[in-house]
Write a protein that binds this DNA or RNA. Sequence first.
DNA 1: ACATCCGGGACAGCCCGTTCAT
DNA 2: ATGAACGGGCTGTCCCGGATGT
Lengths: 193, 193, 193, 193
Amino acid sequence: MAQLKKSKGEITREKLTFVAAALFHEKGYHAVGLNEICAVGDLPKGSLYYHFPKGKEQIAIAVIDAAKHQVAADLRAATSSATSLEEFIDLLLARFAQNLEQSEFNKGCPITTINLEMAGTSDAIRAACADAFENWIGLCTGVFRDAGIADKKAHELAELIYASVEGAMILARAQRDVSPILRAAPYLKTLVA
Amino acid sequence: MAQLKKSKGEITREKLTFVAAALFHEKGYHAVGLNEICAVGDLPKGSLYYHFPKGKEQIAIAVIDAAKHQVAADLRAATSSATSLEEFIDLLLARFAQNLEQSEFNKGCPITTINLEMAGTSDAIRAACADAFENWIGLCTGVFRDAGIADKKAHELAELIYASVEGAMILARAQRDVSPILRAAPYLKTLVA
Amino acid sequence: MAQLKKSKGEITREKLTFVAAALFHEKGYHAVGLNEICAVGDLPKGSLYYHFPKGKEQIAIAVIDAAKHQVAADLRAATSSATSLEEFIDLLLARFAQNLEQSEFNKGCPITTINLEMAGTSDAIRAACADAFENWIGLCTGVFRDAGIADKKAHELAELIYASVEGAMILARAQRDVSPILRAAPYLKTLVA
Amino acid sequence: MAQLKKSKGEITREKLTFVAAALFHEKGYHAVGLNEICAVGDLPKGSLYYHFPKGKEQIAIAVIDAAKHQVAADLRAATSSATSLEEFIDLLLARFAQNLEQSEFNKGCPITTINLEMAGTSDAIRAACADAFENWIGLCTGVFRDAGIADKKAHELAELIYASVEGAMILARAQRDVSPILRAAPYLKTLVA
DNA sequence: ACATCCGGGACAGCCCGTTCAT
DNA sequence: ATGAACGGGCTGTCCCGGATGT
């Protein structure tokens, strides 16, 4: 049975992760200072190092992990509400497009910026990102396999579609226009048909 | 006839742009300091400020512009040496995969990291990235159109394929493996067939 | 009863203010760097930023406020030891003249230089200076009023005398000679007679 | 007869002095950069060092000298248009008060800020300021002597009145109100009566 | 256990005043 | 008379811990 009450420490820790996640999502890793995280979360600097003694990198990894579970939950929601692969793809694209627009094109993939900034510097962060990507692509692979596509192809398609969405979001952020995401839909659907 | 000799100032400026491009490419925008650029290029800080009085942002824009031309030249080279759309796609993917591997997965797209880091902060940088993306996709569009594909579809395909490559490179960096790029090839080829 | 022990932080903060006050007094606002303040006080920059998160301006305001209290205390001391208005004026002028000479004409009014440098730039600093001036002139006004001079005239005289001293100190610094201050005494005394 | 045409070099030099004078007047010495002077005057940096090879200090001295002549001319104008010592004092105060107000309290004495900032650092600048002050006070002394006041007293009065105006302008800048200048008038007049 | 204070250096980006080669 | 280069200094703020409660 789930724990009913969170200790004060857990609350602080979650708040830190939550605030850091939002800031990293919008601005990336290096543009966010620990001061800023504490200020937004209204927490003293000392608390941060109590909960994350290894510092900023550890926070980032916690954030990446949290994002992994969040997006996974979204994917499962899309899976259960979609009645066809086409609809699944539409839901997927629509969700990312919506997130972008609602945040005025500031929130794309929650971990891509961190990944690109830190992949060459911190192997722990890189690995955490790889784990998240793998998890998400794995979930999509499951969807396609459940629809009768062979294992290998299902994985390749999931990977390609996920990559396309990632890339389209990058274009969309640069152009401040979600069209690149939406224009990809019909072509991606033909691939899974 | 073209100018045979470059002035000393132009050489310094180009060196700055070149060094900054390499550093930004590998580490992104925020992780690179102006001190570092000067140190690597063996130039004093004053020179940098003389050529780029508006600072780091101005350097980044110059770098993005240089990358635009560099990639465009590569695309034209691929175009002229390819004898079919399939081969063009292969050359494209191979080139990016090769760049990644040769740099130990540190050099993906030369401007994507900057774009993601700064799109929400600097509209000038965002616009410069959008311009570069548009330029590259436009060149690909031309290739597809020359192969007989209708304008609209040519552009949509170019955009999707470019987005796929972008996304695949991100996955590849996280996984330290170029497979995601290469695995996309057959599917992208079916789209242009 | 007053607090007997100061916390470590308070001591550091006071040291910063004290060192900054001395430097600003001698060299003005812009000529003093935060690095210099830290170096003289043997403190790291982090400490400074911790106590004065808003930076140099905030330090300047703290310095102005400290100077206000310091000069006010001096004025009260002069008031209580003087037995006549004439003697009060003499003490006042003598004190400023002495400060100038002892500092080799480097320390005039502790806030005038800051005021002139920053009045047009920082309204907060300007206001802090205005507050200090008002405080000092107010104290002098009180002295004159206690000697039987009517309110309005007491204030006007206090203001004029203070202005004369300010101006005389400026001349004295330029000429490296306190005579302008001392020569003013008889005339100022006739005004209060 | 005076030279009718100025050489290009003289024009540039005068423009530099003029621009620098305005900037120093409003912001003081350290707050004005040579870049700023060149930018405002639309002149290349090289020109500045051609005309003032000793740099910023030399410019400041030229500015102080120009201010000396300018204020001296103003004093002579006041002298010739005033029909009494009282009127002379009124004209003097009114002029400074007007300058302050018209510049939104940014332009007090053209050299006091420089004097306070640099008296302890640059003896050349200090001496130039002392020379200007002496010149102005000398002119006033002449006025008083011409009105029949004995030499010594004439000089002391001139000095005191000038000091009062200096100090009153400082108060006026801090308070953003010219009243301290105007309130001094009647008392200063009684001194010369 | 948990939180907070108070530093502690290093370095960021920016811009300075200056000089040299042309 | 000037474009270019030159270092160094500015303020700000980074990420990080030891000391100190409670």
